[in-house]
Amino acid sequence: MTPSASVLLLTTLTGFGYGLLAWLGVFGAARGLPQQPWFGPLAIGFALAFASAGLLASTLHLGRPERAWRAFSQWRSSWLSREGVAAVLTYLPALAFAAFWWFDGPGAGTTLVAGLAAGAMGMITVACTAMIYASLKPVRHWNNAHTLPDYLLFALYSGALLLMLALALGGGDLKGAALLAAVLGLLGLVAKLAYWRHVDHAAPLATLGSAIGIRGATARPLDKPHFTQNYILREMGFQVARKHATRLRKIVIVCAFLAPTLLALAAAFGLWPAAMAFVAVILAACGLLAERWLFFAQAVHVAALYYGHEV
């Protein structure tokens, strides 16, 4: 599948934003955040800025963005519609969280409830995003048991890194958040390796014989319907050279998971925590963008069978 920048930004940035929102809710409830009145609203704004940037980027993917409001209507059947509804609904508890923190105080019951609700709604939005891909039957690289937990895990991991940075900048104690980020980073690495192992070994969805209705025969393309590109090949026939993919996977392992984990550990033990947190977030953002690029670029659509691609 062709990796378009808008969708890469959507899935990565909302992961950072909603992940941070989730941890702000949990750490707020556990009294693990600085108790100054400005910290809550600023950190929540930081989280919403990431998520909103992602959501805005996703509208660039639309052919007719001026009609985007229509996408809220089919939540009964469409995960894309559910994602839109959940994303908008998340703003309500998130803004309430910020308001209660400011007016009622960080320790108030209302703040606690709004924080947990905002975190939960954010993760529900991430889950809807994941399900858009996980529910697509023609793409076996997405339609499997890894996609949903991986999206949630990567969101929680990137959110924990952002929380570490927010605590470093806000003068809070970041040891808990840094250790959490390190643990989630290692879990994320294991999940990604397991995903690659799965997609590299799973059986193809269909054969060309089955795709053209001739059972028990092997088929190979003789003449294509057209000699140049078309929409199907451009959108669904994207191919990435194996040597580039192998190199990118190494970059993902180091940049998205191992390096930020080590930096988080360094920050946890008091080694230039703010600088470590900042570099960890930048590296993880680049690494996770590469991870998401591969998630799209290496996903093969079964319709590419008709053009002789291996699925």
């Binding site: 060309l208 014989g209 053209i212 001739i214 059972r215 028990g216 025969a217 092997t218 088929a219 190979r220 393309p221 003789l222 003449d223 294509k224 319907p225 057209h226 078309n230 199907i232 008709y306």
Partner: peptide
């Protein structure tokens, strides 16, 4: 879109 394929084996 009209494709052409070469088939081998099978009933045909």
């Amino acid at each position: 879109r009209i494709h052409s394929y070469e088939t081998e084996g099978g009933a045909c």
